[in-house]
Design a protein around this nucleic acid. Sequence first.
DNA 1: TTGAAAGCGATACCAC
DNA 2: GTGGTATCGCTTTCAA
Lengths: 365, 365
Amino acid sequence: MDKITYNELTNPQSTMKKVTIRDVAREAGVSVTLVSFVMNAKMGKDGRLDCPVNPNTAARVLDVAKRLGYRRNNAAASLRSGKSHSIAVIVSDIANPFFAEICRNLENIAYEAGYTAIFASSEESPRKLEHLVETMVGFNVEGLIVAPCLGSENALSRVLNVGIPTVLIDRDVPGHEFGRVLVDNVDAGTMATKYLVHQGFGKIEMISYKLGVTSLTDREYGYSKSMEEAGLKDDIRIHRIDYETEAARKDTIEIFRDALKRGTEAFVLPTKKLAMYGFNALNVLGLNLPKDFSFVCFDESDIYDLKKPVIPHVVQPLAEIGTKSFTLLQQMIEEKVSEDEMNISLKSKLVLGGHFGGDPIEASF
Amino acid sequence: MDKITYNELTNPQSTMKKVTIRDVAREAGVSVTLVSFVMNAKMGKDGRLDCPVNPNTAARVLDVAKRLGYRRNNAAASLRSGKSHSIAVIVSDIANPFFAEICRNLENIAYEAGYTAIFASSEESPRKLEHLVETMVGFNVEGLIVAPCLGSENALSRVLNVGIPTVLIDRDVPGHEFGRVLVDNVDAGTMATKYLVHQGFGKIEMISYKLGVTSLTDREYGYSKSMEEAGLKDDIRIHRIDYETEAARKDTIEIFRDALKRGTEAFVLPTKKLAMYGFNALNVLGLNLPKDFSFVCFDESDIYDLKKPVIPHVVQPLAEIGTKSFTLLQQMIEEKVSEDEMNISLKSKLVLGGHFGGDPIEASF
DNA sequence: TTGAAAGCGATACCAC
DNA sequence: GTGGTATCGCTTTCAA
């Protein structure tokens, strides 16, 4: 007995021929123009289609279309009209909860505005990013929201300059034609540090990475500046470890071991991963929060929320990044935005407190 | 002074007219056919384009194309050829790390196979899912990978039956024309339970939700069956709490309080959220792992990995779901798959152990 | 209200 | 190797 193939299985007559606007027109006894009108008509507030078509004709067309299983071919429509009513969102790592949350909010607001958002991930590869930009532009998307890859920011501006409205998020690249929705990382570092100062700590240190990306150097700057302003200039100490190597984990342990001797009171851990190294080090050395040290961490982790009050952590306004970037892009697409509105800077929030039965609160410092 | 608009800013001559294959042909002094050949040629292994075109001509065309900034219009290509070389992945919640990780792996393998994967999120809304399916099909994607919405699984088969190859992941809906890559949840529940039995525990309980989704009921069944097989039928106890309400958190605390009196030794916590309730209850009651209870949790959390050895947890093979679902879809698109190959069942893995300086290990029970 | 016909930008087919 | 041209399915004038 022969194998049954998928095709035979689903297509008894082997060719489920596509239903076009023409078929509908023929079957309904009207012109293709009419069908096109009807299929594009939106519902008016009175529940009637707002198009210059006889309601009876329209109803007949709608009926036939449904019976035949007509489905618009977007490729054709978009080829002809130049519009696709869709935008592309290219992030650098779709598996990162940070981007996932941005995407979720972006999707929602885009959908409400009548746009379809399609997502893609460059996996931090400039080559892939270039490929994706090409593909998306090839789909006639009307705008791009892009989180540039790590490291190659400068080389990217050429790739991105494809002549369609583009909004940058998370990381910056040069180019005055881009919209931007970026987070104020200096402020984030400042807020974390000021909180610890306000708690009465003086010997506050920071652990960061050697790689000099602006998001981190900005947070470092915020830390240093705050320490200075608090008259703690001599206590400024930024440890810079390798980026995501096994050495990083071990270095953190050593840093903590020495910190005990130095009398360090608190740490600013400016990324989630650095915070994880911190927690690991605590466990290895048998230390406890807040007895031995105090932390201000960044981003989100189940660990921060494990006990109440929660471990103070600085979170980026993910929902806002999503919605603001779409709104800006939409304005750019519709050409109603002035130059000074194209750079949006968002503030992070410090999440504190929360007791048994109570929710965490947000605070400013 | 007037506002400077985005358009004036980026388009000095106000219309950056699109470069078509025609423009390239004219500029290079060849026919459009030639340009089409060249633009579609792939690199042969010898670094030469494998197309019936004179290498010199090809080079000239390539050069002109680049100089003019030519970019293929996918809409046109796909309209004519009926192919788009892209597939759509519609998940139910893009912000869920579970899907994010699947998407990442899927993207990678699709890219290697020469397909572009575009992602969308239905946000657990059947209406949105329907809209997305329409949009994606309208883009002429060659296949669909879909994670159905929660609850409305049955109603969905009509929407999904759009006549193009479709692979279901995570949740099932009826329809023999679909490919499926699902995880064996009975096995997952069994594995978790057998591990605890093997550790010498007898009084093993489970906390689950009242809502009867198959992923959970299957895990419950695996638990019950294993308990029976271990001669622990009388110790079977499944607590069913509300789904993600504040009551759920409090109920878990009460369950634990009673469990102490009952002499319960271990818990199977079959979702991440249930595990979080568990950890919260431990904190509230001042209990410790593994002194007071032992846990087997599900999915991934930073908390599981906080201390070494890690808290045993059952993880779904996310990477495999991603790659297998794409591979199956590809086979369906190319019509080389038999019916019995269209249902793929994957096993979860139990992650155990891991000591200072050592990685977690995977085990089978 | 309705319809005929001209493309959108590529690929496919066939002839040279 | 190369080029001419019909065509994919739709939107968009323009005329009736």
